[in-house]
Design a protein around this nucleic acid. Structure first.
Lengths: 217, 217
DNA sequence: CGCGACCTTGACTAAGTTCAAGCTGGGTGG
DNA sequence: CCACCCAGCTTGAACTTAGTCAAGGTCGCG
């Protein structure tokens, strides 16, 4: 399922912090697109840092629906759930490099307080995102949802051209819409000259104010 | 706005725990129905324990929409937001008794670790609830939402007859529906002999399995 | 080049909203 | 104590939005 990458104790320079135990202890792993990183029900023994790529957490339900927990991007910590077992499954949306450290090892290395901090920060961030996600789903129209989503992606990315790591189905699941509706809304935003899709996975904002308006709407 | 109740250092017996600093230090306050307990933008200097009543947190938006953060019930802690200012407003849905303690006082009384624990637990609980709320809003039909909501209320309450602390508008805001749709779904659930409303604020589950099915659906 | 996955588009349908009346029941004043 | 009043709830009919089903298009890859 997952294959180790050579350097076992490599602390990638770009991520090192003064006391970055995670970088020192963590194991670098590569996951191919669509590979599972952890599954719901597995023990929450590890801490994950996404060095490169995009990850999706989701919850498989009996009836086939798959509500998306969240998306995680370059540099973010994920998998820090608060119970002893994962309630969500994490999958690589694109090829990913992930730094994995066991909680035990972190504690053994004296990173008790650091681990606590990591978990705290990740939990607060997840809560904030969940609240934002909630306000998106309650009383927002399809076009507002799509506009908010694109705006959010653009905010996280300094480049002019924004890459969509996820396909339409993932967007739809996240936004509580169908793939067709997402597609239509995107077409509509393009006709309104608010965004411009170079391909279905890359877009550029042509009228930021208008997009903000639609997102807030 | 709020009026102190006589007993300043009364630790209500039913809430006392081995080391219940909150009960010892907290000030008991009464809030009338619809009174504001704290407002968005205020500093998060206090910790609140709801001794009796029901509280709603919500976020007032420019356009008049008011997404509901959550409802809090007897015995729960609330207002433990993670930033220095409240992002949500808390209001009493019914007449409430609230135990209020300042964070400073708790720390001064040596409750540093206890405070930390309180905040951690409340944050985790809020996150869990937010996730549940999310899964309710993504891809659930109106009837499923209402069924889930009623089921949730009933689970929290051991009595056979369940009191609805909130009106239809609050339910609608929480469920991402209109007041009319909520009303129609309730009527429908009654026709299906799944629940029985004694008045618009009290109901009884007549077919628990059926309600569970509809809620899960 | 052609296949297959993914995206877009169209026509129709279903679900929920909106707008507009009516109803109900709990509280108040005569 | 009763009648009235009014906020909150329910109901109905028309309408709007998003979903469904089905077909066609596009892009990347073997």
């Amino acid at each position: 399922m997952m294959h180790m990458v050579n350097e076992f104790r490599a602390a990638p320079r770009e991520l090192s912090q003064p006391t970055d135990l995670m970088g020192a202890i963590g194991v670098r792993m590569a996951f191919a697109k669509d590979e599972e990183i952890y599954g719901q029900g597995e023990a929450t023994d590890f801490v994950y840092r996404l060095v490169h790529g995009t990850v999706r957490t989701s919850h498989f339900m009996a009836d086939g629906r798959r509500p998306i927990g969240d998306f995680y991007y370059d540099g973010e910590l994920f998998g820090l759930e608060t119970r002893s077992q994962h309630g969500l499954t994490a999958e690589a949306l694109s090829d990913c490099i992930v730094l994995v450290a066991s909680r035990k090892a972190l504690i053994a290395a004296g990173g008790d307080e650091e681990l606590r901090q990591l978990i705290w920060k990740a939990t607060v961030r997840d809560l904030d995102r969940a609240r934002e996600h909630l306000s998106l789903l309650v009383r927002k129209s399809a076009s507002e949802r799509v506009a908010s989503f694109l705006m959010g992606l653009a905010d996280r990315c300094c480049d002019e051209v924004v890459e969509l790591a996820m396909g339409r189905q993932d967007m739809a699941d996240y936004l509580g819409l169908t793939i067709e509706t997402v597609s239509r809304m995107i077409t509509q935003l393009q006709s309104a000259k608010v965004v411009e899709f170079k391909s279905c996975r890359q877009f550029r904002i042509t009228d930021r104010d208008a997009l903000l308006d639609m997102a807030a709407g």
